[in-house]
Each structure stands twice: as C-alpha cells, then as structure tokens.
Amino acid sequence: MPASFFEWVVFFAKKYGIFFLKGAGTTLYIALISTILGFLIGLAIAVIRTTPMDEHDSQAKKAFYKIVQAIFVAYIEIFRGTPMIVQSMVIYYGSAELWGLDMSPIVAALFIVSINTGAYMAEIARGGIISVDKGQYEAASSIGMTHRQIMISVVLPQAIRNILPSIGNEFVVNIKDTSVLNVISVTELFFMSKSAAGTYMRYFEVFFITCVIYFILTFTVTRLLLIVEKKMDGPDTFVIHGSQTVPSAVLKGTR
C-alpha cells in the first residue's frame, strides 16, 4: 500500500489513469456538445425575440407572437432561477415517472445541460444583437436588404463576435458544472473520481488529481478560445492594392 500523499497520487494516476481520462473525455464531450446546442437554442430564441413586428401583420399573428415571447421568458427565468443539480433530478426522474422515458444518463445529461445553457445563451445572444450599433441595421435597410438578410450578413456576425467571450465562459462553466450530473450517474470526471476514491477511501489524493484535470481542461479551452477570437478578428493589417488601372487584374489577386 502507498504510504505518502505523493505515493497515493502516483498509485491512482497509474491504476486509474484510463478511468480519469474517460471521465474527463465524457465531461468535455457533454460540455462541448451542450455549449454548442445551448448556443444554437439561445441564438434562435434571441433572433425570434428581436424580430420587429410588422404593422401589417394580422391580429392572430401578433397574438401568437406574444404567446411565444411569454413561453421564452418563462423558459429563461425557470432555467436560470433553479440549480442545474435540481433540474437534473426533476428531468431525469420526472421523464421516467411521467412518460416512462428511459433516457440513458448521457442523453439526459446532454439534454439537461443544453437547455440549461440555452436559457443563459438566450439572454447573452439578445444582448449581443441589441448592442450592435443601430446604424448598421439602418445602413443595411437603406440599401434594400430585408430583416433576414441584415441579420445574417451584418448583425449576427458582429453580435456573435462580441459575445464570443461569454460563449467561452459558458463553455468553461459547463466543464465544471457537469460535475453535478453525478447525481444521475453520468460517468463524467467527478463520478469517476468518486468511485475511485470510494474504493480506497482516499478522497484527498483522488480529488487532488481531479482538480488538476479540471484545471487543465478549462485552462486549455480558455487559451484556445482566445486564439479563435484572434482568428475571427482577421489580420491587423491589410494588403494595399497597387494597380488601380486594371480592375480585373486586381480582382484576380484578391482571392
């Protein structure tokens, strides 16, 4: 039996290395997929919520729009206002109880974290859309672009770029918060650690390793996202085009 703290750490790293990696893999998998899905949910909601009503629209359409808005607000408030650990229990056991749904823990995990993230993302994305200068929208309108065209070509690219740090933040939060999913037996990093620690009753050493792994995950992700942001901003300088006399020749050089 290992004697010191250090020996225990080496012992667990050797014996349970694969175990930890699998747990970390699951954690990253759930966090990544759910952040992406949550982003798409949030973006869709934000786009719908920021769509202006046309005065020519019928009363029925306006009423429908109001109801949809109310549903979105309820969704956002409920999921932001309750802990994800409780949401997990309610959704996982509730779906089994009420509809006899036998979700695998991992599917349940993806579902729960996605809609939880979606609630936060909806507000983040709405903020991103609203913060794009109104002049951008007006200029695009003034050359005849439709609302949809303006959103796709002008507003959303800028909004998404501006909220990228918040999206990254949600991703990091998700890496950490997937740990609560151990309550529904998802074999993510925390769950794996708990099993390993329980076998030998060595909680400190195991969770020390777990701690390091979580940090490596979040730190790497943060760095990667900074690179992505830089990439999205494009180069700091631009290429001057010398030839002004032969437009077609200039164009060939541009692509």
Partner: peptide
Amino acid sequence: LQEYRARVGMVFQNFNLFNNLT
C-alpha cells in the same frame, strides 16, 4: 420597400459601414 430603398440610397453622418465586412 426593399426595391425602393435600393433605388434611393442613403449616406449617413457616421458612415455606418458594415464593420464585419471589408
């Protein structure tokens, strides 16, 4: 309205160039 606006252009005091585009 779209067709009309394409025929009647506007230049703004604050330029309002699309920041995300070259």
